[in-house]
Every structure is written in C-alpha cells, then in structure tokens.
Amino acid sequence: MDFEPSPAQAETLAGLDTLLAAHGAPAQGFDAPLFARLRAEGWLDLARRSPAGALDAVLAVERLSRQVALTPAGLHGLVLPLLFEADPGGVAVLADERGEGPVPFGAEAVLVIRYEGETAAAYRTDPSAARAVTANYVYPLAIPGSPVGAAVARAPAAAVRRRHRLALAAEAVGALDGALAMLTRYLTEREQFGRPLGAFQALQHRAAELAVSVEGARWLVRTAAWSDDHEDAALAAAYAAKAARRMAWEAHQLHGARGFTLAYGLHRHTLRLQFLSVTAGGAGRHATDAARLRWLSAA
C-alpha cells in the first residue's frame, strides 16, 4: 500500500508532462499529432508492460484529460491491450452496447470494437463510411463505419467493459481536476458585495463537497486500476459519473454567466464531464452492475 508514485511512475509522469509542454496548446478536435507522438513514444503501451500497468495507464489518462488532450488514449491505453498484444496502429473505437450510436473519434476509426454477447470483437472498418453527427460535447463524435470482414481480435466482453470503465473514470478525473481548478480560481478572484465569492460559506461548502468527490473519484479509479477487478471498476465508474454530473452543474452554477463563454473555456471540461456521465449507461448501469456482481452473482 503506497499512495505516492514510485520513482518509475514519477519519471513516467514527468516524461508525459515534458511531452505535453513541448506539444503546446491542445487542438480543438482530434489531436492527431499528439496521438502520433503518444504512440511513437510508447504511451499507449503502459498496460502491456507490466502486470500492474493498468494503473500507469490510468495515471497517464488522468494527466492527458486534465490538459484536454483530445485523443483516444484511454481506449488505446486500457482496452486495446486486451485484444492486441502489440499496438495494431490507426484509431480504434468502442461501439456502444447496441452498436449504433456516435462515439468519440468515430470518424477516424479503422478498427471498431463491438459487444457480441459474452465477447467483444474488433473489426476493420472504413473511416470514410463514418457519419458525423452534430453534437457539442468537445469530443469529436461520429457513428463509425460498419464492420468489414471477419473479426480480427476478440476478448471477453466483461474485461472490455471493465477496462473501458477505468478509461472513462480516469478521463473524468482529469476533467474534474480541470473544472475544479478553474472554479477555485474564480471563487478566489471574483468579488461581489465587497468580498471574494469564495468567502461566502454557502459556496465554500459546495466547493468543498466537490473537492471530496474529485478526490474520491481519483483514488477509487486508481485503486480499481490496481486490482483490475470487475466490481471495483464498475464502482469507480459509477462514482466518477456521479461526480462528473455534479461538477457539470455546480461549476457552471458557481461561475455565473462567465462559465458559458467559449473564451473562458470551462466548457472544455464540463461538456466532456456531461458526456462521460452518460457514456456506457452512466452511473445507473455501472452501479447496478457492481451491485449484481457483489450481491447477486452467486444467486
């Protein structure tokens, strides 16, 4: 039990910071150059390197998300290692349970992973067949093309769901960090009635409860990545989804109209949080699955 990064983990995260600093301002859509660098420098392979690599991948996804780095690093870092021993190249996406909705980076996908009962299967797909949708949630969303040919890889659906939940929760933690940092700064600097907003106790309590949920989500997803256990991942995703929804409401409410402006940029976190909170069935599905695993699986 150790909550501090090991020297190796600290070095890994410092390396990621260096890469992000060198990369400069995040792109508005799919950040293809950043994704290419992450791939080239092995950042998508963390979970392949050691038995506990899922935790390293989660730490990296948190960090990338805090910077609003728009890449499918979560899926590639956590889910793809279940299907492919080595990086298959290109962009892969995970279709929703019914295989019909828009997904982040769907327009780039050359591989689509689909749930088929007890297994999940990866297929080739043609990105030119993808259909973009109009949706304003920061992630570039599109309905990926149909599967082409036979499955090229398979993995148990439960394992894919587990790692996807870790990816979603880690992504949410990064966005929660980003939103809370903006909110804290705003409450400190913005004055009304002759004092900073953050000096009003009614607002302090709301901000403090947000801080509890951000830290709760962070350590739940990290411990779930360490155990790499179905129930733990579902619990972490449920908690993170609820924290995400709450932050989306509260960060905007406490920011006033300033939070709506594109120039200010709060939406880069909150819209992603809202998206993450409904993905893969949202908190209700995650929590129900966790409850079934704990209390009903033997029945």
Binding site: M1, D2, F3, E4, V212, E215, G216, A217, W219, L220, R222, T223, D232, A234, L235, A236, A238, Y239, K242, A283, G284, H286, A287, T288, D289, A290, A291, R292, R294, W295, L296
Partner: peptide, 29 residues
C-alpha cells in the same frame, strides 16, 4: 430488492470505498 434499490446500493458501496481510499491515504500521510 428492486432495480432502484440495487442501483442505490451499488452507489452507496462506491461512496464507502471512496471514503476508505481517502482514509488510507491520510493514514500514510
């Protein structure tokens, strides 16, 4: 134990485990 109860129970367990992680961190600190 209906669907709403099952969901609420899962959410409550997540809140318990979140508290546990945070307390472990305090113990180490």
């Amino acid at each position: 134990l209906d669907a709403a109860g099952l969901r609420a129970a899962g959410e409550a367990r997540a809140v318990c485990l979140a508290a546990r992680g945070l307390v472990h961190k305090v113990r180490q600190m």
